[in-house]
């Protein structure tokens, strides 16, 4: 299966998906850690992929999203953004309704 198809499949199966460096419990980068903590604070379940263990997927995602860094949050298959945007949306109150609207 080509990387692009794998990405589409993962996004179809997971309406809330965080591609990050490390895992929520052991983030490997400050930005991924902030993004995971922000999502954790909403207490809404989300899927995650540690892109450090999936370099091909990471390269594919940068192209797919035309966004060169991680973390990357997708809600219902749409790129929302990285940690800056996740934190800004959490603060402005936009994040939770979006997550609520997407959760399984």
């Amino acid at each position: 299966m080509k990387t692009k198809e794998k990405i589409k499949q993962q996004l179809d199966e997971n309406p809330i998906m965080l591609y990050m460096k490390g895992t929520p419990k052991e983030p490997k980068c400050g930005f991924s850690s902030k993004a995971a903590m922000a999502l954790n604070s909403t207490e809404i379940d989300y899927a995650y992929v540690n892109i450090l263990e999936a370099p091909l997927l990471a390269m594919g995602l940068k192209e797919y999203a035309d966004f060169p860094t991680f973390p990357q949050l997708y809600i219902k298959g749409e790129l929302i953004g990285g940690s800056d945007i996740i934190l800004a949306m959490l603060e402005s109150g936009e994040l939770v309704p979006m997550l609520e609207g997407a959760k399984i």
């Binding site: 966004f67 060169p68 860094t69 929302i80 953004g81 990285g82 800056d84 945007i85 800004a88």
Partner: peptide, 14 residues
């Protein structure tokens, strides 16, 4: 949008 601003700025360092 915030996302577009990020894409433009981050794009400078692709």
């Amino acid at each position: 949008s915030l996302l577009q601003r990020q894409k433009d700025v981050l794009g400078l360092f692709k």
